[in-house]
Design a protein around this nucleic acid. Structure first.
Length: 304
DNA sequence: TACCAGGAGAGCG
DNA sequence: CGCTCTCATGGT
């Protein structure tokens, strides 16, 4: 039977922490729940005591796409057991109970993180929103959730500029981006990242780069493949590998994680960047990427 | 004003 | 390797 809602029964899942932890950029808070787009599906998610309630605009026969995206079938306790047993890690896990790593679409994830370099998360969300509004395909969306004001900058004051218009559109395909001009992309305020996004989209659209193949390669080979793309270095490659390609061992090191590692593991010590990279690559075990997400969210929300 | 933001890449010693 | 500079744009 096709339905427009379902209760995914699961207990150790913090929806807000997971969707707000900087691994994904399109979810918006709405009446205590979260509204977002997964593939071609408009979705509203609400945290319940016994699980996550999901509501879609169109009928759904099989909800596996959502279970896969949210990673609800992952044995979280089993993952946490593989983390190193040290004070910083214990503190991060205790502070972020129920935080999970999502399984995103590889192109949306890669494109989003190409746009992320030297940008604050708020601004990344804004850029991605504009990209979807201008180049995404219209989605089926319940009218009740549409903003009465209709625009994001019509008299919006202060820091709480919601901008939910982009939730009426899918994330644009590589083909659609590839057909755009650099100037049109720059109009989304992405600056010097525009040629990087455009080049990646053209490679993929032309069949010269296969994102879906990466998951079948060893981690180091998949990372090397991604880094052939202009504008994609270690950090952005590891984000795509962890958040979209199923590499739980990928460990993206950005300014926040570097700050966390130095402050939590090497306080009052001068550690070289090389030493830090070696530590990050060896200390956190087979699910290092999940550990990274706990440290990142812990550092951003609980410290200072 | 000056500085910085979930980086990457090139130039230099 | 390690350091520095540049890239574009918005916020404080």
């Amino acid at each position: 039977m096709a339905e427009t809602e379902i209760l995914l029964r699961i207990r150790d899942y913090d929806l807000a922490a997971t969707l707000d932890s900087g691994q994904v950029f399109r979810w918006r808070e709405h009446n205590g729940g979260r509204i977002g787009v997964v593939g071609e599906h408009w979705v509203r998610l609400t945290q319940r005591h016994n699980g996550i309630h999901a509501e879609t605009a169109a009928l759904v026969k099989n909800w596996n796409w959502l279970r896969d995206y949210l990673q609800t079938e992952v044995d979280l306790a089993g993952v946490l057991k593989t983390f190193p047993d040290d004070a910083p890690m214990r503190a991060a896990v205790a502070a972020c109970h129920g935080l999970r790593v999502l399984r995103q679409d590889p192109w949306e994830c890669l494109a989003s993180f190409i746009l992320s370099s030297t940008k604050q998360i708020v601004q990344i969300r804004q850029i991605v929103a504009q990209l979807c509004e201008r180049f995404g395909e219209p989605l089926t969306r319940p009218p009740a959730t549409l903003s009465p004001h209709g625009g994001e900058r019509a008299g919006a004051r202060g820091a709480s500029c919601l901008n939910e218009n982009h939730l009426s559109y899918s994330f644009p395909t590589p083909q659609r981006i590839a057909a755009a001009t650099e100037a049109a992309l720059r109009a989304c305020k992405m600056g010097f990242r525009a040629p990087h996004l455009l080049a990646a989209a053209r490679q993929i659209a032309a069949g010269k780069f296969d994102l879906n193949r990466l998951g079948h390669l060893p981690l180091t080979e998949a990372r090397a493949e991604l880094m052939k793309l202009r504008g994609v270095g270690d950090k952005i490659a590891d984000c795509a590998l962890l958040f979209a390609c199923g590499f739980d061992g990928a460990f993206p090191v950005d300014v926040w994680v570097e700050r966390a590692l130095r402050q939590l593991y090497f306080p009052h010590r001068q550690v070289t960047a090389k030493h830090l990279r070696h530590f990050a690559a060896t200390h956190f075990g087979p699910h290092a990427g999940w550990a990274q997400q706990y440290l990142f969210h812990y550092m951003r929300t609980k410290i200072n």
